[in-house]
Amino acid sequence: MKKLFFAFFVLLLCQPAFAREQIKVVGSSTVYPFSSFVAEEFGSVSRYPTPIVESTGTGGGMKLFCSGNGMNTPDITNASRRIKIKELELCQRNGVSNISEVMFGYDGIVIAQNVDKDPIELTVRDLLLALAKMVPNKSGNGLVENTYEYWDEVNPDLPRRKIKVYGPPVSSGTRDAFEEIVLQYQTEGMKVYRDAGLKGYRLIRTDGLYIPSGENDNLIVQKLTKDKDAFGIFGYSFLAENSDIISGININGYKPTSENIASKKYPISRSLFIYVKNDHIKEVPAMEEFLAMFLDPAIIGEEGLLTEIGLIPMDEGRIDAAMERVDSKESITLDELKLALRDLE
């Protein structure tokens, strides 16, 4: 018995030194369904064990990913936004300097309502005025606290319906993206916000008309079946799976469909990424095969398997570019990231 215990602990201590068979993936809960789907495919088709996929949120994933280069750290992290400069700096401080950035598709954020309600058309401007904490006053020369309670106050063309929106909480990547696309992009171009010193303002109102409803999008869908007046904000795949009880709302005249999101006509969408630790490829030989499978057009392409569970596919040129990035093991650099961020502004 004693020997057994001893052998056991020796085994434990030795573990990190060995090459690893099993890939470890962490990161965004939005990307989680996609990467775990591929992980399962990989586990059942290849000779390697199924990769472990953990849903830690984009930020949490980056923290684990950047914590070091040891075999105990994840090999891949999923992200529903680009890596932040701060995160890349953290990575580099901890010696994780060779990271490939791979974009593999899009995700749409939809606004939906109960299927029984009359259809309604919104614009991103309506959403800004209805949901921002500070909005331009009537004469448009200053900012005031948002007191709109009905949609027709925001835009006289809209019906007199109470503003009531269930959406993701602050911790969520979906909320991040929503704030950025619907609020920030607009307020950056609006003089009123610039004059008030609030360029790129992106705070959502907190007076109870926007109701943060937890990370589980199913809960928001359930609420819409009971609360017929309300709207809900969540990921596209939940709309696709529940079209019997909820219907998506056209934004800027475009329906939230796979085609419209991919062509960027539907305005509220974001890119999905995986970040790969190239220094691990030697010790974790399964990684190369896994990535090749992930980026295969049969998986992420237009007819790919992931589109069945709600991924919005990229065009072929971009898929080829993604594969090339992985093959070349080219690392993302701080300068590149800073440049890309400047372009956005």
């Binding site: 085994l11 573990q15 775990s36 064990p49 199924t50 472990i52 953990e54 849903s55």
Partner: peptide
């Protein structure tokens, strides 16, 4: 501690995910 994850393989020992 990372046990809420996608792990379809049945673990064979206590040091497997």
């Amino acid at each position: 501690i990372g046990m809420i994850a996608f792990i379809p393989d049945t673990p064979q020992s206590i040091v497997e995910a």
